[in-house]
Each structure stands twice: as structure tokens, then as C-alpha cells.
Write a protein that binds this DNA or RNA. Structure first.
Lengths: 219, 219
DNA sequence: GAGATAGCATACCGATCGGTATCTTCAAGC
DNA sequence: GCTTGAAGATACCGATCGGTATGCTATCTC
């Protein structure tokens, strides 16, 4: 009535933003409400608990992620263009999400929060596994396309290779966040993916993600 | 006097254990004290803050980690044996740390906590970077040895490849924790490392880390 | 044996935590 | 115009948060 959908979305997006900056357990309900310009009464009208909001935020985030993935994996692209799109998407996601948060890399908060959830917080873990599951499908599709194209050496297990890509990207993003350096991500992303895919040399490119000066790289 | 060193160690190890189970921000000082059988007075006698304890725990943990790494990277091993040792160590670390915690995989809590630390918690991040830095040295040594042995294809950048290994292992462990399945880690660890190293086929082995039934793998 | 001090215990602080109960307000349905 | 219920606001809950102030006590020094 007072535009409930808008209030709900504001809460979801504010929560997502705050969780990007830190993590699930250190973001408070009060903080979310305050930043969203919403009272606690409204919060608990829309969500029955903090964990409930988290799950909803996770799904809400996936919706936008899915749109991006559908775009970059469009059949109008060759498998190699899809791979290139993925590399660019990973970088740009970080740039977009981190702008105006005075950090360079955030990683995917729903994975890492899920990975850090205690044994009692089963719901949080399940939300991460759900997203993991969705992502894996897209990853497998990419690897399958590359294999069909004859771009990969040998006869790889496409499900396994898809998991490899995921593991590596997640680990790299945590590293990038630790170092607070997007260039650290740029420096390793392409080559690491190539190696995990075992992409034939003829299909590899150098990329141009090396320079781009940044304050964080003074160290 | 009432054995201060022992009290301190108990606090460090209890804290480490609890952080393995969840993460920095959701482990409370009271909880640590209670489980360590120590009062809050004692806690703040030994550490000036929770963050201070965390850093000390991180360094304390590194000490034991360093002993393990020195052992597996002993010059008495060939580079390939060192690699094999690393694979076994990663698995066994998880088994040891997770026993009696009703979980199968925990990952390295100091990395992930560091990676999830908010911008304000600079100390936490620095502790993780410190450990990262130490680990990288060992990783580089391994890759250098493998390269000198002629076990790697091409002419790789050993620092970069060492980082690759780190990224992959961290990502894989987060995944394993999410899935709560050590077998998920076993299934991908060896092959992923081989690919990132671009290890010559002649030097690869199958390993025997596939079976080992587990309740978590029913899914 | 008389300080002096490290080691620790107890009690408490204000702030914040996630969550609830109760109230008002506004818009839709009839 | 009246009713009804969703949407939201306010105030409060007990529990816990990280941290502190103060005091006791065992051991060491002299």
C-alpha cells in the first residue's frame, strides 16, 4: 500500500550491500533498517527473521546474477567469446558492487558467508548451496561448449572442470579482497582459468587487464 | 604464576577451535572464556582486546602450520613427493581440525575471516595477509622445485603459479565446507593442482582419495 | 616476614543484539 | 461512509556484546 514491494526491495538491496562490505553475522538488523530508511516494524512485517531476509536477499541477488549470466552465455556468442565475457563480468561485477564502498574487491558475499556459517546456521549454508548449484549449471554449459568447439585438450570431465573454475574464482576473489586489490584479481584470473580448462594455446589471448594503477598496489 | 603460559595457550587454542567452527565476528569473548575454563579477568590480563587475541591466535596457529610445512617440504623429499605430501597434508589438516566438531571440512579460518573482515577491522585482514605471505613463500618453493625438476610444461611464472595453487585450495575448501563433504575436496584437489601446475603427464598419479563413504555424500 | 607484582576472579558498564507487542495510518472493497 | 487488513511506526524485551574497575591471592624478591 505504502508501496510494500519497494520497501521490501530496499531492504533486500541494502542488506546485500552491507553484507558485501562485511558479512552476515556482523551486520545487524538495526543497521539494515537505518540505512534502508525503514523502521524495525516494517522489517519484521516483511521478513520473519534475519536469516529469512538473508535467504530472500540471496535469491534476489541471484535474479540479477542470472540476467548477467544469460547475457554473457547467449548462444549468439562463440564459446570463446563466452569465456571472455565471463572474465570481463567477474571484473566488472567487483567494480560495480564496490564503487562507493572504498574497497576494490568484495568477492561473492553469499558464498563466503555460507562457507563461514556455523553448524547451527543451516539456513545460511543452504542459501549458498542453492546459488552454488545455479552457478554450476552455467559453468558446466560453458565448459561443454568449449569442449564441443574442440578448444580443450584431452577429454576432460566437464562437471569437474566447471567446479575447478568455481573454486579458483572464489579463492581468487577472497585473495583479492584480502589484498584489497582488483589488479591482483586481474593478474591471475585469465591465466588461471586457461590452465584449469587446459585451453589449447591457439585459443588463448593475452588480455589487457594488467595495468590500471591503483592506490592499493603501492604495497 | 598460576601457570600463565598455559592459560594463554588454552585461550589461543580454544579461540582457534571456535573460529574454525564459525568465524571471528560470531565468536564471543565470553564463549571463548567459558570453553577455555578461564575467567574474563584472565582473558583481558593476557590480551588487550578480542582482535588482539585473534592476531595472537593466528600467529600461534601459523607456528604449528610452519612445522608441518617444513616437514613436508623437507629437502629429503623429491619435488614430486613434496607435492604429494602437500595434497595429503591438506586433507589431513581438515580431518584433524574437524574431528569432534561434527563437520567434515572447515577451511582455513584465518583466511576466510580475513577475507570477510569489514573495512574497519584492518587488524584482522593484516593477520590474514601475514599468513598468506608466509604460505606463499612455501608455495613458491614447491613450484620452483618442480620446475627445476623439469616436471612442468613451458616456462611458467613460478610466483603466479604458486598463487594459483593458493587460490584454488582456498576456494576448494570453502566449497568443501559448504557441502560439508571432505570427499568433495578429495575429488577435485589433485586434478586441480595438476592442471594449475601444468604438470607433465608422466609425473601425474591417480591418487586414491576417491572413495571413503560419508553421510554427507548421500546428496 | 614484609612488600610488590603477576595472575586471576567477580561484578558491573553502556551499547547493541535479534525479536515482539502494541499502536497508528492508509488504501482497497463493498 | 464504513469496515477490514496490510503497511508501518514506537517502544520495549531479555540476552549478549566487548570491555573495565576493583579486589583477592599466590608467588617472587629482598
Amino acid at each position: 500500500m505504502r508501496n510494500a514491494a519497494e520497501t521490501r526491495d530496499k531492504l533486500l538491496e541494502t542488506a546485500t550491500g552491507l553484507i558485501w562490505q562485511s558479512n552476515y553475522s556482523s551486520v545487524g538488523v538495526n543497521e539494515i533498517c537505518k540505512q534502508a530508511g525503514v523502521t524495525k516494524g516494517a522489517f519484521y512485517h516483511h521478513f520473519e527473521s534475519k536469516a529469512d531476509l538473508y535467504i530472500a536477499a540471496s535469491r534476489h541477488y541471484w535474479e540479477s546474477m542470472k540476467r548477467d549470466l544469460d547475457a554473457i552465455y547467449s548462444p549468439s556468442f562463440t564459446p570463446l567469446e563466452q569465456l571472455e565475457n565471463l572474465i570481463q563480468l567477474i571484473i566488472h561485477k567487483q567494480i560495480n558492487e564496490c564503487s562507493s564502498k572504498d574497497m576494490e574487491v568484495a568477492g561473492c558475499p553469499f558464498f563466503t558467508s555460507g562457507g563461514q556459517a556455523g553448524i547451527d546456521e543451516e539456513k545460511i549454508r543452504l542459501a549458498a548451496r542453492e546459488m552454488e548449484d545455479h552457478m554450476q549449471r552455467y559453468s558446466v554449459a560453458l565448459v561443454r561448449n568449449l569442449k564441443a568447439e574442440g578448444a580443450l585438450k584431452g577429454n576432460p570431465d566437464i562437471d569437474q572442470v566447471a567446479r575447478f573454475l568455481h573454486h579458483f574464482v572464489q579463492g581468487l576473489l577472497v585473495y583479492g579482497r584480502l589484498m584489497n586489490s582488483l589488479n591482483a584479481v586481474r593478474a591471475d584470473l585469465r591465466e588461471g582459468l586457461y590452465r584449469l580448462l587446459d585451453l589449447k594455446e591457439a585459443y588463448r589471448t593475452e588480455g589487457s587487464e594488467v595495468p590500471v594503477s591503483s592506490p592499493a598496489d603501492a604495497a
